Computed example of a mutant assay.
Amino acid sequence: MRIPFIKMHGLGNDFVVLDGRAAPLPVVTPQAARAIADRRTGIGCDQLIVLEPSDTHAFRMRIFNSDGGEVEACGNASRAVALLHGAPVTIETSGGPIALEPLDGGARVDMGAPRFDWDAIPLAYPMDSFTMPVGWDELTAPMAVNVGNPHAIFFVDDADTVPLETLGPVIEHDPLFPERVNVNVASLAGPDHLRLRVWERGAGLTQACGTGACATAVAAIRRGLVQSPVRVTLPGGDLVIAWQAGGTILMSGPAAEAFRGTFDWADYAGGPQA
């Protein structure tokens, strides 16, 4: 069975998109998602995106990280899907409905309202999420924010010098975060400008993380470090995040289609070979 796919990216955070809105797709298992995402033996991507019909919205977007785990939200993929759809639309995700609006070369996405309660992050036990009394080596006192998926944000002098490749997986899997967590390290670059690196839950270091940019901008605004709108510079490029207390998060930035192709589902349905 040949399956068409679209390879897309937002600031280098790349996706394989399977469009099942008009014709049903085979059941996507974690094993198949992991095999498709493999950069040596598969198509290769940070996330596999599956579009399918929805009972409540125009369509549903499902997101599988490269480790095969399904997650609630992906800001960069949302912009790519907006570009692919080509018109304003509200869609269903596991993290809640989001509104997409394509722009020239990218999109604006209403990511919904951030959540700050400890059990909405979620954390394993009650704790003030504004300045958490925890730390891992040089990373201390993070803020926790849920923007459809969970994030811990650390503000540091220089985000580029933090050994995120070693601290990221330790924090991601800490028992404090029962659903694991995305780890963000940010430094102040101006009154409305942040530099950010992200260790993504289930994907590792990526060129850009849209939900990470949203969570980090919200955290910086709450702490009085920056003013909205905020330019967030990631390794792959810039996003612009606008948020006012009590409102929803608006994220704007580029997205692009790289190429299209097809693959034989049977080659990946069983997952990676041992």
Rank of each mutant, 00 (worst) to 15 (best):
L167C: 07
A159S: 11
N146C: 12
D157H: 11
V181T: 07
I171A: 08
T166L: 08
F130I: 15
L139A: 07
A152Y: 04
R180K: 05
A152L: 12
N184E: 12
D174P: 00
T131G: 15
A159Y: 11
V147R: 00
V181R: 05
W136Y: 15
W136D: 13
P163V: 12
G168H: 03
N149F: 03
P133V: 06
E165C: 06
P133L: 14
N182V: 10
P133I: 08
T140A: 15
N146Q: 03
D137F: 09
P175L: 01
P122R: 01
L176F: 09
E172I: 00
L139S: 08
T166G: 00
V183L: 04
N149D: 06
A152C: 13
D158F: 04
G148C: 04
D160W: 06
R180G: 06
P126Y: 12
V134Y: 12
P150W: 04
V181Y: 03
N182S: 05
V170K: 10
A152P: 05
V147H: 00
L139C: 11
F130T: 14
R180N: 06
I153T: 15
D128V: 14
I153G: 10
P133M: 11
M132L: 13
A141D: 14
P126G: 12
I153Y: 07
T140P: 05
L164K: 01
P126V: 14
V181F: 03
L167F: 11
F177H: 08
M132A: 10
V145H: 02
R180W: 06
E138R: 07
Y125M: 13
P150V: 05
P175Y: 01
H151P: 07
P178L: 02
L139K: 02
I153H: 06
E179A: 11
P142I: 00
A124N: 11
P133E: 13
D128Y: 12
D128K: 06
V181I: 12
M127E: 07
E179S: 13
V156C: 13
I171H: 07
S129W: 01
E172C: 01
V183P: 00
S129C: 14
E172R: 01
A141G: 11
P163D: 09
A152H: 06
V147L: 00
D174T: 00
T140C: 15
A141C: 12
P169Y: 01
I121K: 13
D160E: 11
P122H: 01
L176G: 00
V183H: 05
L164T: 03
G168N: 00
E138I: 04
I153R: 07
V145G: 05
V162P: 02
V181K: 03
V145D: 03
I121Q: 12
T131S: 15
V162D: 00
